[in-house]
Design a protein around this nucleic acid. Structure first.
Length: 292
DNA sequence: ATTATTGTTGGTAG
DNA sequence: TCTACCAACAATAA
């Protein structure tokens, strides 16, 4: 689920559910997700009010009164659901929950994560995982002058591998990198240091292009999963965003997951290979490595 | 049964 | 100290 656009989508829902709400109960029993004791989770959170719901890259940050911060990373399969009814039942793969009251309205916000790669961290100051993030392309924009030295410093790494480093640009994942490199017509294997100013400028435009595209698709309610995603999220009990039964799953991306289909630009069949352990789809013609 | 999956991290080797 | 590489984490679907 989660690259920058997905996490932004989650943030917007969390904001509706949580901003201004008072926490009446809290639970986190899974030590993979919340590393401290379950008792400390409840003890620190109950009674607090949620002031803001922020995001940088793939990290979420709730600011509570009493200057307490709640950081959340969704890993590969994390998501938040909300239910209005106080039925108390534990949802499948529920790993943590906040019970809140906002005015007269009570609700339960659940953290769901089948693979348990996500994290929730309580802190009084920003944690290194947050402070070490590079600029967020959506909220900070992309500064070519900042990006250029970050790319040229890497001697051997490919541009795609460097884009996946969260200290370069926060929130770019495998799908965004795939889509943006296609848009910018850059070979994913090209050494990051080999990109010229014109390449970097195209890339700086292509990344927000890919983000906006996916945000629009999420807002429209398109299925946000790639066709062969390992984990399907169905059983959502989400009062603000109910599931649409019977909607066929389809691939909302132009390039990712489309090996063998014609390139939307030049009709050459897209190819797929593994780079840095990650699936990479690209057009062998549009994204041909340039001579240097 | 085998392979694939949107992300990070910790160990190791250089 | 920095960089590169890779297994591991866990669940599910094709």
């Amino acid at each position: 689920m989660p690259e920058l656009p997905d996490v932004e989508n989650v943030r917007r829902r969390l904001e509706r559910w949580l901003r201004g709400a008072r926490i009446t109960a809290a639970r986190a029993e899974d030590r993979n997700i919340y590393r401290a004791t379950p008792r400390s989770f409840a003890q620190k959170l109950v009674g607090r009010r949620v002031e803001t719901v922020g995001r940088k890259g793939k990290w979420l940050r709730l600011v509570l009164d009493d200057e307490l911060l709640v950081f959340a990373h969704l890993g590969m399969t994390g998501d938040f659901h909300a239910s209005a009814r106080d039925d108390g039942a534990t949802e499948r793969f529920e790993r943590a929950r906040l019970e809140v009251i906002s005015g007269p309205k009570k609700s339960i916000v659940r953290y769901i994560d089948p693979r348990r790669w996500g994290r929730i961290v309580l802190a009084r100051e920003d944690i290194p995982a947050w402070t070490e993030l590079g600029p967020d392309p959506l909220t900070d924009g992309i500064d070519v002058a900042d990006l250029r030295p970050k790319l040229s410093r890497r001697k051997r790494r490919s541009i795609k591998e460097v884009l996946l480093e969260q200290g370069v640009l926060a929130g770019v994942g495998n799908i965004l990198a795939t889509e943006a490199l296609w848009k910018a017509a850059i070979d994913p294997r090209a050494p990051a240091a080999s990109l010229g100013d014109e390449d970097i400028r195209r890339l700086a435009r292509a990344i927000p292009w890919a983000i906006d595209r996916q945000l629009a698709s999420l807002a429209k309610g398109d299925v946000d999963d790639p066709p062969k995603a390992g984990v399907a999220r169905r059983s959502r009990i989400d009062v603000d965003d109910p599931p649409k039964a019977g909607v066929a799953r389809r691939n909302p991306f132009l390039i990712y997951g489309r090996k063998g289909e014609p390139c939307p630009r030049c009709r050459t069949p897209l190819e797929r290979f593994v780079l840095g352990g990650r699936t990479t789809t690209f057009c062998p013609r549009c994204q041909e490595r340039r001579r240097r």
